[in-house]
Amino acid sequence: MSTEILANLSLAVQKGRAKDVEALIAQGLAEDFTAQQLLEDGLLTGMNLLGVRFKNNEVFVPEVLIAARALNKGTLLLKTQLVEEGVKPIGTVVIGTVQGDLHDIGKNLVRMMLEGSGFQVIDLGVDVAPETFVEAVREHKPQIVALSALLTTTMGSQRGVIEALEGAGLRGTVKVMIGGAPITEAYANEIGADAYTADAASAAQMAKSLVAA
């Protein structure tokens, strides 16, 4: 059992080589690695390293997407074993773009980076009403709700979701993260959100620190 496989798996994810990922996972399982090891020390390590480079603008969006595809192929292959080993995602995030806002570019990127960090992500899409967020929180019991807004005219809807969660008595059960072009740290504080991040890679890091806390 050589840890070289884990390093190669990480590299294959970073380079987005889905076929190499599949072959390395088959080899890893044959060599008695656990699915959890292959996932965490191989696939997710690779995605995290790429995330850091993405945050530093050293790689471009298509490279991240291709890496995400390789990661998805890998996690699909490991799915059955992960359930057998009792491995759970590091957390669940409900994500969506708030009511009145049809933008999903930033939200999709954040979703991808969250998945790449080992989260299960429930994506509610765009133009999501506050009550839909409340229902999703009731149903999926996430640790985090992530709210995206790209317009100054719709950023107020983020406050609406927080108020709806308070009204339903669920605010204490989840952390609320917000993001989007017009959003600032000060605004996050003003509406009572738990965290604001400026880009997708930082959002994934923030989410990890929120569930670890």
Binding site: N57, V61, P62, I105, N108, L109
Partner: peptide, 18 residues
């Protein structure tokens, strides 16, 4: 350089995800 690279990624993000 940093600002330009960031802009490239924002616009590529729009192209791919939007």
């Amino acid at each position: 350089r940093g600002g330009t690279a960031q802009m490239i990624n924002q616009l590529l993000g729009a192209l791919y995800l939007g």
